[in-house]
Design a protein around this nucleic acid. Structure first.
Lengths: 210, 210
DNA sequence: CTACGATTCAATCGTTTGATGGATAAATAA
DNA sequence: TTATTTATCCATCAAACGATTGAATCGTAG
């Protein structure tokens, strides 16, 4: 058994996959309401009806996009977990920040779409939001803040959310922040990592240092 | 000399002011594209053409809203500055977080609209974005990270942005995060303050403590 | 009371948007 | 070959949207 989304991802040349890729980018850039199906179709170079043929309505496509980016992000977190496993907390944070920042810089639509879901209202909500709490619990465990994935304390959830958000913010807000600090992309990326480490590492390592 | 916006704010009962208030809320909730002029007009209880009569087009109204909330926020920062002036950095942060969080909790549309400007694209951009860099410099000075408002270092700008964003995130994302941690509004507010202090205070006080 | 500017609304216009039906061609099966 | 399924585009629709026009209403100064 395989969902249409999985089928599309297996063959990146397929029309379904091409549409999904463009939809990720455009939805990520302009949000749900700011995007029109015509924008996506034009970017792919196809007719609107072809888009409808493959993905149904606009909302269906959007939900597929959200599921898709969450799947990608989850996979990335597993990769990170593999690398940092067993290291002391300070190093785990250091490496996590580097890897995650690098990844998101190459796929800013991931951060964009996640933040859109947090802060925007879609006027006709779907409910595929059971994924994020899963994430949060995973990261909490990975950071050594929780032992089991179930029953993570609210205080811990909040800390993890603060960490995730602070990363997404800098990625997603690049177009706004980078002109402010007047640096090029490469330097901005370095600044993001530096700033995140400055903010996050002391908070999580101070207690165990004592 | 007084702008239309200033005039509207002087008489809160005026139609101009009533429209602006509702527009703040609706734009803050659904973003620019997610909001229709009809939604605003209906909420105020007037005809669309009345809205156009007072504020011109949708975009004009939106820009007035953004200017308005930035003015409010700036005033609030001045209030905070008055209170914390002269105190040691740790306390300054502590009090700033409390005051700012309380304020934004009562005016979540402020955080919403600011984040919308960071992360969203409006498809037809305006350019009233010279205000935020001003803010950032102000806060940098207030936190003792910069001496003069001009020529703030990029590293400093980034730190201030991280602080501002982490607050806005929790306010703006309440509808998403609060169900996750399963607490009521009051408890959530306390959790936000606690988490922000946990993350931010060690970072900025560690160096001077040594 | 009248005249006039300011304000509000009902009606409507032109465009955009999401979506669909039908024609057409290419690929696949029988 | 023929029949059938798959994939694509063209033309078009109904609803929603931003915006405008012209008439009605209100307060006020002369």
């Amino acid at each position: 058994m395989s969902t249409p989304l999985e089928k599309a991802r297996r063959d990146p040349e397929s029309m379904k996959a091409r549409i999904l890729d463009v939809a990720r980018r455009i939805f990520g850039e302009y949000g749900f309401h700011g995007t029109t199906t015509r924008m996506i179709a034009q970017e792919v170079g196809i007719d609107i009806s072809t888009l409808h043929y493959h993905w149904g309505g606009k909302k269906d496509l959007y939900e597929s996009v959200v599921i898709d980016i969450n799947k990608d992000l989850r996979q990335k977190l597993i990769d990170v977990e593999q690398v940092i496993h067993g290291l002391p907390l300070g190093e785990r944070l250091d490496i996590s920040i580097d890897m995650t920042t690098d990844y998101l810089f190459e796929h800013p639509e991931v951060s964009n779409l996640i933040l859109f879901r947090y802060f925007g209202k879609t006027r006709s909500e779907g409910n595929l939001d059971a994924i994020i709490p899963e994430f949060t619990a995973d990261i909490a465990r990975s950071m050594g803040l929780a032992l089991d994935k179930k029953n993570v304390r609210p205080e811990t959830m909040m800390k993890v959310l603060a960490v995730m958000n602070s990363i997404h913010n800098f990625i997603s807000g690049e177009n706004f922040f980078r002109p402010m600090v007047k640096v090029d992309r490469k330097r901005y990326s370095a600044l993001v990592k530096e700033t995140l480490k400055f903010i996050l590492i002391p908070a999580f390592t101070q207690h165990e240092a004592i």
